[in-house]
């Protein structure tokens, strides 16, 4: 039993990739950047007090699950989502849906996915993937970050779906029931952009949105004073990994969002958005420069080529650029 005409398509990011692949199968042509933008995926957050394997948490995207939810809600797609307490029920429900020929999206922990390179297998519990069938007792998996499809043994899939920790996937699965005959992309794009501007500009607290870039800049400045050289290097390394390693499409989702703005410009026939895309590409390049400089500093801990002060200044500048960028994006007249 499988969705025989299911088309695997590689994407940069797991959640927007799964959203795009599931909707394409259901008959709605939506690219990954479009899904990411409508889903208001771009974000920034820095939580010094939430330690992820010993280093402060940094994120360049919104809370897992919100992209799929936002996209399907604004486009009027009927979906089914479900969490489970019982492993048996979760696997039975998966098999039942697959038997109807529908591909199913699931939350999983990358630690328990044997087909992924070992280098990336940490306890990260919010990875999205699609099962599109079952063959010879194994599940056929379309993982959007992979170039090709994979297979997984049921016992591994169970571990991945019921991984412990925070957040727990609890066997969460989702699939598309019905896409509407006509879709209003224009409305959805505007709504997505508005939500993004709100999420990035409005939080009055230092840990979320644009403010958090300045918070991070401040913290980085203090690293040499407050941390051992080893810890300081690990903290910096973690920012780079969140920005580049974890399927972000480059520059912590900034390029992905710029690609969205470009596509939005075509759909809405709005030249202005193309200019915004160009500007964000430049900001993304600055993020890449930051990562490159940070890596150089880590490599040679005594290096005076780049200092923590300079890294902090780079972040501060990026923060200012993004602030102006989103403030102007918010002002766009529709």
């Amino acid at each position: 039993m499988n969705s025989t005409n299911y088309q695997h398509c590689q994407h940069a990011h797991c959640e927007s990739g799964v959203t795009s692949n599931l909707l394409k199968y259901a008959g709605m042509d939506i690219s990954e950047p479009l899904a990411f933008g409508i889903g208001a995926g771009i974000f920034f957050g820095h939580l010094p007090f939430v330690k992820v394997s010993g280093t402060p948490g940094t994120t360049f995207r919104t809370w897992p699950g919100t992209i799929f939810k936002q996209v399907t809600k604004t486009l009027g797609v009927k979906v089914h989502t479900q969490s489970f307490k019982s492993v048996d029920k979760a696997m039975q429900a998966l098999d039942d849906v697959l038997a109807t020929g529908k591909p199913v999206g699931m939350l999983s922990s990358v630690y328990y996915l044997p087909y992924l390179p070992d280098a990336f297998r940490f306890h990260f519990n919010s990875h999205n993937l699609i099962a599109y069938g079952k063959q010879n007792g194994e599940y056929l998996i379309s993982d959007p970050v992979m170039e090709e499809v994979s297979t997984i043994k049921p016992e591994d899939l169970i571990k991945a779906r019921f991984a412990k920790g925070f957040p727990e996937p609890k066997g969460f699965m989702y699939y598309v029931n019905e896409v509407p005959p006509t879709v209003d992309f224009e409305y959805a794009i505007k709504k997505g952009i508005k939500k993004t501007c709100f999420m990035i500009l409005s939080p009055p607290i230092p840990w979320f949105g644009n403010n958090a870039i300045f918070l991070l800049a401040k913290k980085v400045k203090d690293y040499p004073k407050k941390l051992t050289p080893r810890k300081a290097a690990l903290y910096l390394g973690n920012i780079i990994r969140m920005q580049e390693e974890i399927g972000t499409g480059g520059a912590g989702f900034r390029f992905l969002y710029a690609a969205f703005l470009q596509e939005a410009a075509d759909i809405l026939q709005k030249q202005e958005l193309r200019e915004f895309a160009e500007e964000l590409t430049q900001i993304g390049d600055n993020w890449r420069n930051f990562a490159y400089s940070a890596a150089r500093l880590m490599k040679d801990r005594k290096s005076d080529l780049v200092s923590f002060d300079e890294l902090s200044d780079m972040l501060y500048n990026i923060g200012t650029e993004e602030k102006q960028f989103f403030e102007r994006l918010k002002q766009v007249k529709w």
Partner: peptide, 22 residues
């Protein structure tokens, strides 16, 4: 490193016409 060549990740970049592509 630790099998990372198994995946060639997709990133987004600008082509010579200024258009984004994977």
């Amino acid at each position: 490193f630790k099998g990372s060549d198994k995946v060639k990740k997709l990133v987004y970049a600008v082509d010579k016409d200024g258009k984004y592509t994977g």
